Simulated assay, not measured.
Amino acid sequence: MSDRANELRDNLLQVQERIEKACQAAGRARDEVNLVAITKTFPVSDVRALAALGVRDVGENREQELKVKAPECPDLIWHFVGQLQSKKARSVVRNASVVHSVDRSSLVEALSKAAVGEEKTVRCLIQVSLAAYGSAEAATGAGRGGVEPSAVPELAAEIAAADGLELGGVMAVAPLGSDPEEAFAGLHDVASRLRSEHPGADWISAGMTADLEAAIKHGATHVRLGRALLGTRTPLG
């Protein structure tokens, strides 16, 4: 193996150990939590190396990178996790089977039209804002996107009724300055209410390198890890 492949293998082993310990602490089975490798800014060679190590779920948060990498590794499950402009919905739908960041009706319409055109079904997660659990400074600063919890039922109904789309559950990012325990507990409540109306919407996409343990404690089914797997990113120009 190359030095980079060895590095990724070691990182993956450490990540898997963290997930295992978090599941044990939460009284959950390890297979309840899926790892999504976020490969933002890293080359497709890293994607291939992770795939060789058994990683099947890969995520991107920029359409420009997704459309380059996904065709090179078509056997993987591609997730789009970033903020999405409606005009780029067709490209994302063509290259990903899961969109984690649905946050408005116009995007539901664009994704539905694209999915029908591509003759595929796209699993959609509603991005929920947890700003109420962050500091005042974070709440008034750069937001991390998402709809207010009170708006989830209406948007869920739109997704569930849309051709080509499947309502998958919820996604969130813990706000800057927040207690992730409190933030993810709030997300768990939102997810539970959603499942009462839509039993199949059972995904909770939450937890990144710094807070995956708190997310798993509060029901995360998918953790999105970049830095812990791939190292420090090179800033995008």
Rank of each mutant, 00 (worst) to 15 (best):
L12R: 03
E65G: 03
V93K: 03
A22L: 00
A110D: 13
E17K: 15
L12S: 00
A25H: 00
V15Y: 04
R28V: 00
L66D: 07
H79M: 01
V15M: 01
I38P: 02
E63G: 11
K113L: 15
A96W: 07
E17F: 10
C73A: 11
T41E: 04
S97E: 12
V44N: 12
V102H: 09
K87M: 13
A110S: 14
R30F: 03
K113S: 14
P74G: 00
K40H: 08
V92R: 08
R94G: 10
A51W: 07
K21S: 02
E72G: 05
Q24S: 10
V68P: 06
N11R: 07
R30G: 03
N61W: 12
S45Q: 12
D103W: 10
Q24T: 10
E65V: 02
C73I: 10
K113E: 14
E65D: 10
S105A: 15
R90A: 15
V44A: 13
E109I: 14
R62V: 07
A115M: 04
T39L: 06
L107M: 12
C73E: 12
V47M: 08
N34E: 15
R104A: 04
V58S: 09
R62E: 00
R104P: 02
A51G: 11
V108H: 13
R94M: 07
I77D: 11
R18K: 03
L107C: 05
K40W: 06
V36G: 02
K21G: 00
P71H: 00
L53K: 05
I77E: 15
N95Q: 09
L66R: 01
R18L: 01
A37D: 07
K88N: 06
R104C: 02
V55Q: 00
K87A: 14
S97A: 15
R94H: 08
K69Y: 09
E60T: 09
R56N: 10
L35C: 03
V68I: 15
I77M: 12
S105Q: 15
R62N: 00
R48Y: 04
V98M: 05
D46I: 09
D75I: 02
V102R: 09
A96Y: 04
A96D: 07
V15W: 03
A51V: 04
V99Q: 07
A89I: 05
E72H: 08
E20H: 15
A96P: 06
Q85D: 03
L66N: 08
E72N: 06
S86Q: 10
G82N: 05
E63R: 09
A37W: 06
